Computed example of a mutant assay.
Amino acid sequence: MGACLEPTAAMGPYRVEMRGQSFYLTRTGTPPEARAGRYEAVLPFLDFRELGAAADQITGHPDWARWEEAGRPAPADTSWTLPPDGTGPAAPDDWEITEETADGAHQLRIRGPWIVQHEPGRELWSAEIGYSDLPAFLWLVTRTAYA
Rank of each mutant, 00 (worst) to 15 (best):
P84R: 08
S126Q: 07
W67R: 09
F23G: 02
A147P: 11
Y131A: 05
E96V: 15
P89D: 09
I110G: 02
M11C: 05
P32I: 06
G52R: 11
P113Q: 06
V116Y: 05
A147L: 14
V16E: 01
T26P: 02
L140P: 02
P113R: 03
D63E: 13
A41R: 03
T98N: 14
T59L: 11
A54S: 09
T59R: 15
P83M: 06
E17T: 11
P89G: 08
P84I: 02
L82R: 11
A127F: 00
T98G: 10
E96N: 15
R109N: 01
V42Y: 01
L108P: 04
A65T: 05
L46S: 14
Y14G: 02
R109P: 01
W139K: 15
Y24W: 11
R35E: 13
A3M: 12
R72S: 15
D56I: 03
W139T: 15
A65S: 14
L82G: 00
A91L: 04
A136H: 11
T30F: 03
R38T: 10
F23C: 05
W125V: 00
P92G: 04
G130E: 15
A65M: 07
E33L: 14
T30S: 13
M1I: 08
T26G: 00
A127G: 07
W80E: 04
P120A: 13
L43I: 05
L108S: 07
D94E: 13
I58R: 05
A76W: 06
D63T: 08
A74D: 13
W80N: 05
D63Y: 04
R27S: 04
Y131D: 01
C4H: 14
L51G: 08
